[in-house]
């Protein structure tokens, strides 16, 4: 199985000093969903943004490489990188409310990449946008095309964003908490949709979430992150059945399950956090 994304020794640091991501390596194979899971602040978003080249100004990649189909994205000129973005690599935003431009009609936003990267005419791109909306099972797709985002529900907006991500048939989609802003019932539908679309199009997905339960539902591989370090990595079956790291086990115990009462939940013990924070401190001592 060939690799689509090959992140090696990625270190993301603050410009004024300090690390947010500490030598993370992870691979996403063709057509696979790779879950990147960890608590809030673990550095998941920084990894996703590093791949997409949209790190905040205060933050930079200090070492490591981000291989995409054999090319290091970090070595590309801005122009050649832009040619990949929206064409070969796409993103599903987290918040369906701000992920769409409130002033532009759905059709205008959906056809941007089709026209820009594939050179389609307005009419051609509209036809394709319509087909995509049908594919993500939106009712009245013809009408939705001419609507503004605020006229759609949160679930519909997220479907539009998913359709947009798949529009140019990219090989890799980065989805940063794409269901976190949705309520639980819609969340499940959207997860199923992402998985369906991904399988049908053979797209690799880096799926970022804080929810191990979500990872278990749709991922093939999983990387568990804490304080910017990988604490566990492997196939989902392997990690779920015999997790080695105490943090992964604690995270599993802290994840709600439908087949267990809520009082069976245990928060991650402070000692587990402390061990990993100490490890991060040791790392920073060695790599100032």
């Amino acid at each position: 199985m060939s690799l689509i994304l090959d992140i090696a020794g990625l270190r993301v640091s603050l410009r004024r000093g300090g690390h947010l991501v500490r030598d993370v390596s992870l691979q996403v194979a063709t057509g696979q969903v790779h879950g990147l899971v960890g608590e809030s602040g673990a550095g998941k978003t920084m990894i996703a943004k590093a791949v997409l080249g949209i790190l905040p100004d205060a933050v930079r990649v200090s070492t490591g490489s981000i291989g995409f189909k054999g090319t290091d994205l970090l070595s590309l000129s801005p122009r050649r990188f832009r040619a990949l973005l929206g064409r070969e690599i796409a993103m599903i935003p987290q918040d369906p409310l701000t992920g769409l431009n409130p002033s532009r009609r759905i059709v205008a936003q959906m056809t941007d990449t089709l026209r820009h990267h594939l050179g389609q005419s307005r009419g051609e791109a509209r036809g394709n946008a319509l087909r995509l909306l049908q594919e993500v099972q939106i009712r009245d797709p013809e009408k939705v095309l001419d609507r503004y985002p605020h006229e759609l529900s949160g679930g519909m907006r997220q479907r539009v964003l998913i359709a947009m991500a798949f529009a140019t048939e990219p090989s890799l989609i980065i989805a940063d908490e794409p269901t976190t802003a949705l309520d639980v019932t819609v969340q499940k539908q959207i997860l199923r949709l992402i998985r369906q679309m991904q399988e049908r199009h053979g797209t690799a997905v880096l799926f970022v979430t804080h929810d191990l339960g979500v990872v278990a539902k749709i991922c093939h591989q999983v990387t568990v992150l804490h304080t910017g370090q990988v604490v566990e990595q492997g196939s989902i079956d392997h990690v779920m059945s015999n997790a080695a790291a105490p943090f992964t086990r604690a995270l599993m115990a802290a994840t709600p399950r439908y087949d267990q009462p809520a009082d069976a939940l245990h928060p991650v013990p402070e000692a587990v956090h402390q061990t990993l924070r100490d490890a991060a401190r040791t790392f920073d001592g060695r790599n100032p």
Binding site: L84, G86, A90
Partner: peptide
């Protein structure tokens, strides 16, 4: 600050 700007940037637009 809005995410749609990130979305546009990752769409490869100038």
């Amino acid at each position: 600050e809005m995410e749609y700007i990130d979305a546009a940037v990752t769409g490869g637009l100038r």
